[in-house]
């Protein structure tokens, strides 16, 4: 027994354990999602987070200990964000064609998402940290976390809430499109990518490749513009 606990002490100090837990948790979560028919409520990322949090609480490992190893996976978010330039470049022709409608819709969407969030949280008496962590909720995670850090929210809280937002958008979006009689797939895709980032993009690709391409475009454009607009907006509002 003492040998076993000595081994555990050694393992929990090494980055390998965190990395193994993260990848294993994600693979199990993907399997669970597939079994549930790919439901947006059981998105692999959200299930993986729940599994890993449960495991860490069970064995009494703190988040800091876990992150010491998991940061090697986390680090890749930086180059992955830079990599978003490639799909954006691929759709450059479409962007040029619909440039102004897309820019106007994008900026309106970003302002609507941020202002409605700030207003609702403040009206319901949420704390300042909650407001600032929620403001970038519609922005794709790597960028949203950077924004949260810049404006004074908690990046880790933002990351989790961004993921929940994505799942909510995937549930509400199709219902709204039907109610508003929006049938154009490029409009549907762009709207999903703006409000529900990567989750919306993944779902749009199941509708049609046109919807998916526009969702990816909206995700990149929203991320880029939000990174410039939201810090200025928060400073301007004096939140």
């Amino acid at each position: 027994m003492t040998e076993l606990s000595a081994l555990w002490v050694y393992l929990s100090a090494s980055p390998i354990l965190s990395i193994v837990i993260t990848i294993a948790g994600f693979l199990i979560a993907s399997r669970i999602n597939k079994l549930a028919g790919g439901s947006a409520f059981l998105h692999p990322v959200i299930v993986a987070i729940a599994l890993i949090v449960a495991f860490l609480s069970l064995v009494g490992t703190s988040y800091n200990q876990y992150f010491e190893g998991a940061q090697f996976i986390h680090f890749l978010l930086g180059p992955a964000t830079v990599a978003l330039a490639v799909p954006l470049y691929d759709h450059l022709e479409r962007v040029k064609q619909m440039f102004w409608p897309l820019i106007i819709a994008c900026i309106s969407g970003i302002l609507t998402a941020a202002l409605s969030t700030i207003a609702i949280v403040m009206m319901m008496g949420g704390s300042r940290e909650t407001v600032l962590s929620l403001t970038p909720k519609s922005v794709t995670s790597p960028i949203a976390m950077g924004i949260a850090e810049k404006i004074g929210g908690y990046p880790s809280l933002t990351a989790g809430l961004v993921l929940v937002t994505g799942a909510i958008g995937c549930v509400i979006g199709p219902i709204l499109f039907k109610a508003l009689k929006i049938t154009d797939h490029s409009v549907q895709g762009f709207t999903m990518g703006l409000a529900a980032h990567g989750f919306g993009t993944a779902q749009s690709f199941t509708v049609s490749s046109l919807a998916g391409a526009f969702a990816g475009l909206a995700m990149g454009l929203t991320g880029m513009l939000s990174a410039f607009i939201l810090p200025l907006l928060v400073r301007f509002l004096g939140v």
Partner: peptide, 24 residues
């Protein structure tokens, strides 16, 4: 508060963006 804000704001954002882009 967080859950209300996420659901309401996501719905409003989808509504405004989708409606506006569709018209434009």
């Amino acid at each position: 508060t967080i859950l209300t804000a996420l659901i309401l704001s996501t719905a409003i954002t989808l509504l405004v963006t989708g409606g506006m882009l569709n018209k434009l």
